[in-house]
Design a protein around this nucleic acid. Structure first.
Length: 809
DNA sequence: CTAGGGTTAG
């Protein structure tokens, strides 16, 4: 091999007169360069330079060799230049160029050369190159067409033809007969015993088995038969068969093949382990992991990432830490960087186990980070709600992909920053990135947060145009968006038109019905879900219980609560108990609610006491109410809701002295009430109104209308209810100004600005007050309009002087 | 041929 390294004495070469000897010399040297691989490629460029310097023009096989070497060393432009200089390229030159274009990802240029090649000079190798190029360009159908063409034209397929064409079949993966036909052709040819061809055939069978158009069992049977009869099985044969079974979720068959394996292949171990990880069989994962060690099978990066992701998914921080320690001890000596993928698996292990700080340490210590590392860190901060940190990471990223944007958009949306999320979604598009369906889900959620129905509808339209309308995540987001924008019918329609549903879809729809006060329909849908064999989870029960609570279905709710543990084996958490207490307290069964609190397996938290307190306010149980309030003052002294509920409870009973005491309390402790505000969308713009608003540009028109309107409402029987004065109190002097609650202003604005037939949808950040509730009932009658109000807890539909809540608070 | 980063429901 030292010849390739030799220095070429130019003087000697120049003296050579005999051109053919010179050519032979060059040819021999280039052959050596070719055989040496990448390092030889560099030398070949030097030889070429030498040719130019000495006036030697490369032709024939020397030129072809140079083209080949240049394309393999990613100097495609040199190869192209040499090729273009040939007046009448021979078949080798053309084939070489086809292969070059294929390798550099330009299948169209390869095709151009192929098509310009006259049939009389074509050969099998040339077809092979072109078939491979089609596979490379993901056009399996074109590859199969070429294969058929070459057989029609009586070219003899060889091993390479078969492997490429079989790869094409695996790519299109639609028809079983095609695999079987090809199998016959292979057997009849001389390649029926060649392992690489049989591997390709095996892989085609297995890939076709995942196509929705064929029955996988018969294809797997054929694949298995082929596999069992293979005279020589190599690494690829074993792993293809094992991963085939794993991807078919048939772990038993996979294991059977695995156990019959006569060699120790890390890849096979990894495939088996990843199957167990995906099915959540943690015990099996660790069993395999330990067995590898005792048998002396060396772990690779895939083994580690597999095992670590099992730990992450099951929050097995102790196991994860052990593996981490093992890696540090065995694999790398800090600060040497270990495989990036392992670093990434560690980052995700720590944050998924709630240790974001540790994750950050690993992130900071890593010498090399890739996009996955950055995205993992971004997700970590989003998951714990550290939005500022997440933003910092996002801004710092030198490279972002659709996934990065998706995480950030939905992160913002989840934390209530709907406007910012939508801005980011648009920025993403203006950066020239095509949002995927997950990115859309984030944007749609933002519309739900903002209650912006128009923007939501527009996104829905875009979704359909881009062909994402069958996406599960986007569909689920749409259900919630429509429901939270007050368009329950649209939500239901989205639910019904989805091609497939998962538990999230059902939960979303049940929640939607519940929030809109249709408790009976919500429970009906829940029963339907069970009939579809979808198992309820802890969120299903949260939504079903709230639905029952809003609709006063006390006994049903209790029944569902009982079934949770007894039938479905889900242990109720604090939120479940809080909903049970709410259900009982709201319906006036306060003693029963109290019993639940006393017999619960844990100490009641603030959610539960608040549920009890609001029940007491509703049913005027002062003693119990005060006790609940005291608990809340201990637990969350700065929370304004407690003071307001308590004050309203006293006000309703006319105990004004106590009201004053509560208010003084609040002032002394420096607790500020969250100011009430309401908003609605008019012509794609969101209009916000505050209590006693003086900011909105058209507020005077609203007041003017309201003044006359109230008189008309009084004629219909509306009596302002002064006991709700305190609900929305901001300061002393506002006490008398009942008529200026923000929800009233927003509804009146809607009456003034929206078209006659349009439904008015108003959103409020706090709970609607009793007087407004009453007034809006009259408004809906006086104007014959449908008015929908979403407060912090639920939706109310006002129509013909009635509210969908049936006055059940 | 295998792994590490995403979404939607309360």
């Amino acid at each position: 091999m030292s010849a390739a390294k030799a220095v070429y004495p130019i003087q000697i070469l120049r003296q050579t007169v005999d051109i053919s000897a010179l050519a032979n010399n060059y040819a021999a040297k280039l052959l050596l360069c070719h055989q040496r691989g990448p390092s030889g490629h560099h030398i070949a460029a030097g030889i070429h330079a030498h040719m130019i310097a000495s006036g030697f023009i490369p032709r024939g096989h020397i030129r072809n060799r140079l083209i080949d070497i240049y394309s393999k060393s990613s100097r495609l432009s040199y190869a192209e230049k040499l090729f273009d200089e040939i007046p009448e390229p021979d078949i080798v030159a053309r084939t070489t160029m086809i292969a070059s274009y294929s390798a550099s990802g330009s299948p169209n240029l390869a095709k151009e050369i192929f098509e310009k090649t006259p049939l009389r000079i074509r050969d099998t190798v040339c077809y092979n190159a072109m078939i491979a190029s089609c596979c490379h360009g993901n056009d399996g159908h074109a590859a199969v067409r070429l294969f058929n063409e070459m057989r029609r034209k009586r070219f003899e397929p060889d091993c390479f033809t078969f492997t490429s064409t079989l790869a094409a079949l695996a790519l299109i993966a639609t028809r079983e007969e095609q695999c079987k036909q090809m199998h016959c052709v292979v057997l009849k040819s001389g390649c029926g015993l060649v392992t690489s061809v049989l591997n390709a055939l095996l892989s085609a069978y297995v890939k076709c088995a995942f196509s929705p158009f064929v029955s996988s069992s018969s294809l797997f049977a054929s694949a298995r038969k082929l596999f069992d009869e293979m005279p020589v099985k190599d690494k690829l044969s074993w792993t293809t068969m094992i991963t085939g079974h794993v991807r078919n979720k048939d772990l038993d068959s996979a294991r059977e093949v695995f156990d019959s394996m006569d060699q120790d292949l890390v890849v096979a171990w990894n495939s088996m382990i990843s199957g167990y990880v995906q099915e959540g069989l943690v015990v099996k994962v660790f069993e395999m992991f330990r067995k590898m060690q005792s048998l002396g099978v060396k772990y690779d990066d895939f083994t580690y990432t597999n095992a670590l992701s099992a730990c992450a998914d099951w929050s097995l921080i102790l196991h994860g830490k052990q593996i981490h320690a093992y890696i540090l001890r065995i694999e790398a000596k800090p600060p040497t960087d270990f495989m990036v993928s392992v670093t990434n698996a560690l980052i995700s292990l720590y944050w998924k186990c709630g240790k974001v700080h540790q994750a950050r340490n690993i992130f900071d210590a890593a010498c090399t980070k890739d996009l996955v590392s950055w995205n993992a860190m971004l997700s970590a901060y989003v998951s714990v709600g550290e939005i500022d940190e997440a933003k910092a990471i996002f801004d710092e990223m030198y490279e972002k992909n659709v996934l990065s944007w998706t995480v950030m958009i939905s992160g913002l949306a989840q934390h209530g920053l709907g406007e910012e999320a939508l801005k980011l979604f648009n920025r993403m598009k203006s950066c020239g990135l095509e949002p995927c369906d997950y990115a859309f889900s984030g944007a749609i959620t933002s519309c739900a947060v903002l209650a912006s129905l128009e923007q939501g509808r527009q996104l829905h339209g875009q979704l359909i145009r881009l062909g994402f309308d069958s996406s599960l995540s986007a569909g689920n987001a749409l259900i919630t968006m429509y429901a939270r924008c007050g368009a329950l019918d649209a939500a239901y329609k989205a639910f019904l038109t989805m091609p497939c549903l998962d538990s999230v879809s059902w939960n979303a729809m049940i929640a939607a019905l519940g929030q809109h006060g249709h408790g009976a329909k919500a429970t009906e849908l829940y029963e339907e879900m069970l009939e579809e064999y979808i198992l309820p989870d802890r969120i299903t029960f949260l939504t079903v219980l709230s639905a029952c609570s809003h609709a006063g279905l006390v006994d049903e709710g209790k029944k569902y609560f009982e079934s949770m543990k007894e039938v479905y084996g889900i242990t109720p958490c604090e939120d479940h108990y809080a909903r049970l207490v709410d259900l009982l307290a709201r319906s006036g069964r306060l003693t029963e609610a109290q019993n639940v609190i006393q017999t619960m397996p844990f100490e009641a938290g603030s959610q539960i006491w608040e549920a009890l307190l609001s029940g007491c306010r509703l049913h005027g149980n002062m003693d119990l109410g005060v006790r609940a309030a005291e608990k809340l003052f201990d637990m969350i002294p700065k929370h304004d809701g407690t003071y307001i509920l308590l004050a309203n409870m006293f006000a309703a009973a006319g105990r004004w002295d106590s009201v004053a005491t509560v208010r003084k309390f609040m002032r002394d402790r420096g607790v500020k009430k969250e100011p009430g505000c309401s908003w609605l969308e008019v012509e794609k713009k969101v209009h916000v109104f505050l209590v006693d608003d003086a900011v909105h540009p058209e507020i005077h028109q609203v007041y003017k209308y309201l003044e006359v309107f109230v008189l008309r409402l009084r004629e219909l029987g509306y009596v302002p209810d002064t006991k709700y004065v305190l609900h929305d109190i901001v300061s002393e002097q506002k006490e008398q100004s009942l008529s200026t609650h923000s929800e009233k202003l927003a509804v009146v604005y809607g009456l003034l600005k929206l078209p006659r037939e349009a439904t008015i949808r108003v959103f409020k950040n706090l709970r609607i007050c009793g007087d407004c509730h009453n007034a809006i009932k009259f408004m809906s009658k006086a104007e014959s309009r449908e008015i929908i109000v979403r407060d912090v807890k639920r939706f109310r539909h006002f129509k013909d002087g009635e509210c969908s809540c049936g006055d059940y608070w």
